[in-house]
Amino acid sequence: MAAAAAAGAGPEMVRGQVFDVGPRYTNLSYIGEGAYGMVCSAYDNVNKVRVAIKKISPFEHQTYCQRTLREIKILLRFRHENIIGINDIIRAPTIEQMKDVYIVQDLMETDLYKLLKTQHLSNDHICYFLYQILRGLKYIHSANVLHRDLKPSNLLLNTTCDLKICDFGLARVADPDHDHTGFLTEYVATRWYRAPEIMLNSKGYTKSIDIWSVGCILAEMLSNRPIFPGKHYLDQLNHILGILGSPSQEDLNCIINLKARNYLLSLPHKNKVPWNRLFPNADSKALDLLDKMLTFNPHKRIEVEQALAHPYLEQYYDPSDEPIAEAPFKFDMELDDLPKEKLKELIFEETARFQPGYRS
Results as ranks from 00 to 15, higher is better:
residue 326 E to C: 12
residue 219 A to C: 07
residue 132 Q to N: 09
residue 200 L to I: 04
residue 316 Y to A: 15
residue 312 Y to T: 04
residue 106 D to S: 13
residue 110 T to R: 09
residue 18 V to P: 11
residue 321 D to R: 09
residue 137 L to E: 03
residue 48 K to D: 07
residue 193 Y to H: 01
residue 234 L to C: 07
residue 46 V to L: 08
residue 267 L to D: 14
residue 204 G to V: 00
residue 284 S to I: 13
residue 317 Y to H: 12
residue 159 T to I: 05
residue 58 P to G: 15
residue 352 A to E: 05
residue 319 P to M: 06
residue 5 A to R: 04
residue 102 Y to I: 06
residue 10 G to I: 09
residue 166 C to R: 01
residue 89 I to G: 13
residue 209 I to V: 05
residue 230 G to Y: 14
residue 56 I to Q: 10
residue 188 V to C: 03
residue 62 Q to H: 00
residue 334 E to K: 01
residue 28 L to G: 10
residue 52 A to T: 01
residue 94 T to F: 09
residue 139 Y to S: 05
residue 207 K to S: 03
residue 309 A to R: 11
residue 145 V to I: 10
residue 51 V to I: 06
residue 52 A to N: 08
residue 330 K to M: 00
residue 72 I to T: 10
residue 265 L to F: 10
residue 242 G to K: 12
residue 340 K to E: 01
residue 179 D to P: 08
residue 114 K to L: 04
residue 251 D to H: 11
residue 310 H to Y: 06
residue 314 E to V: 03
residue 63 T to A: 08
residue 49 V to A: 12
residue 247 P to L: 03
residue 23 P to Q: 15
residue 329 F to Y: 01
residue 329 F to C: 12
residue 173 V to K: 02
residue 97 Q to G: 12
residue 321 D to A: 01
residue 57 S to Y: 00
residue 55 K to Q: 06
residue 90 I to N: 01
residue 220 E to M: 03
residue 76 L to D: 13
residue 161 C to T: 14
residue 276 N to S: 05
residue 17 Q to I: 09
residue 353 R to C: 12
residue 347 I to E: 01
residue 324 I to H: 15
residue 185 T to S: 00
residue 336 D to S: 13
residue 244 L to M: 01
residue 185 T to M: 03
residue 195 A to K: 05
residue 286 A to Q: 14
residue 45 N to W: 13
residue 344 K to L: 13
residue 284 S to R: 10
residue 132 Q to C: 08
residue 356 P to K: 13
residue 294 L to I: 10
residue 52 A to H: 10
residue 3 A to W: 06
residue 295 T to G: 13
residue 134 L to S: 01
residue 333 M to F: 13
residue 165 I to A: 06
residue 305 E to W: 14
residue 182 G to M: 09
residue 188 V to F: 01
residue 54 K to L: 05
residue 227 I to G: 05
residue 218 L to V: 09
residue 330 K to Y: 15
residue 22 G to F: 10
residue 123 N to W: 07
residue 163 L to T: 10
residue 151 K to M: 01
residue 148 R to T: 04
residue 356 P to G: 11
residue 235 D to N: 01
residue 134 L to G: 02
residue 289 L to H: 06
residue 111 D to P: 07
residue 260 A to T: 04
residue 39 V to Y: 04
residue 161 C to H: 11
residue 244 L to W: 04
residue 340 K to S: 13
residue 232 H to V: 08
residue 176 P to C: 04
residue 124 D to L: 09
residue 280 P to V: 08
residue 112 L to M: 01
residue 189 A to K: 03
residue 86 I to T: 15
residue 353 R to Q: 13
residue 318 D to Q: 13
residue 52 A to V: 02
residue 297 N to P: 09
residue 12 E to W: 13
residue 128 Y to R: 10
residue 70 R to P: 08
residue 124 D to N: 00
residue 182 G to E: 02
residue 337 D to R: 13
residue 241 L to W: 05
residue 233 Y to S: 00
residue 6 A to T: 03
residue 184 L to D: 01
residue 311 P to V: 13
residue 4 A to N: 15
residue 333 M to C: 13
residue 328 P to V: 08
residue 300 K to I: 10
residue 89 I to C: 14
residue 108 M to P: 03
residue 203 K to E: 01
residue 7 A to H: 10
residue 291 D to S: 14
residue 222 L to I: 13
residue 34 G to D: 07
residue 332 D to R: 08
residue 218 L to H: 09
residue 120 H to C: 11
residue 31 I to T: 15
residue 296 F to P: 06
residue 272 K to L: 08
residue 125 H to V: 05
residue 103 I to W: 04
residue 48 K to A: 08
residue 13 M to P: 02
residue 351 T to C: 12
residue 44 D to G: 10
residue 100 D to L: 12
residue 252 L to F: 13
residue 79 R to D: 12
residue 79 R to C: 09
residue 213 S to G: 08
residue 306 Q to N: 15
residue 274 P to L: 06
residue 288 D to Y: 00
residue 49 V to D: 11
residue 313 L to M: 00
residue 7 A to E: 13
residue 69 L to A: 11
residue 294 L to R: 07
residue 281 N to S: 07
residue 354 F to D: 03
residue 276 N to P: 11
residue 190 T to V: 04
residue 213 S to E: 05
residue 80 H to A: 12
residue 51 V to G: 01
residue 344 K to R: 01
residue 114 K to F: 07
residue 280 P to M: 04
residue 245 G to Q: 01
residue 335 L to S: 10
residue 339 P to N: 06
residue 129 F to H: 08
residue 305 E to M: 14
residue 54 K to F: 07
residue 303 E to M: 13
residue 136 G to D: 07
residue 243 I to V: 09
residue 141 H to S: 10
residue 127 C to E: 07
residue 349 E to A: 15
residue 304 V to D: 01
residue 168 F to G: 08
residue 21 V to T: 08
residue 141 H to L: 00
residue 239 H to D: 02
residue 47 N to C: 09
residue 236 Q to Y: 06
residue 208 S to L: 04
residue 74 I to M: 10
residue 251 D to F: 08
residue 120 H to N: 03
residue 260 A to D: 02
residue 282 A to L: 12
residue 237 L to C: 08
residue 249 Q to K: 00
residue 225 R to K: 12
residue 190 T to D: 03
residue 341 E to G: 04
residue 327 A to L: 14
residue 259 K to I: 04
residue 195 A to C: 04
residue 230 G to H: 13
residue 123 N to S: 06
residue 170 L to A: 05
residue 360 S to D: 08
residue 302 I to F: 00
residue 255 I to W: 08
residue 221 M to V: 07
residue 171 A to Q: 03
residue 229 P to V: 04
residue 147 H to R: 01
residue 30 Y to M: 09
residue 259 K to Q: 02
residue 248 S to T: 02
residue 138 K to G: 08
residue 112 L to V: 10
residue 54 K to P: 03
residue 13 M to W: 11
residue 150 L to R: 05
residue 164 K to R: 04
residue 292 K to G: 08
residue 171 A to S: 01
residue 325 A to F: 15
residue 269 H to S: 13
residue 95 I to F: 00
residue 33 E to A: 10
residue 352 A to W: 13
residue 249 Q to V: 08
residue 53 I to Y: 10
residue 244 L to V: 14
residue 353 R to W: 14
residue 276 N to H: 12
residue 207 K to W: 06
residue 288 D to S: 13
residue 77 R to C: 11
residue 228 F to E: 07
residue 259 K to N: 01
residue 134 L to E: 02
residue 146 L to R: 05
residue 165 I to C: 10
residue 241 L to P: 03
residue 307 A to M: 10
residue 273 V to C: 07
residue 276 N to E: 06
residue 287 L to C: 12
residue 23 P to N: 15
residue 187 Y to C: 02
residue 140 I to C: 06
residue 357 G to D: 00
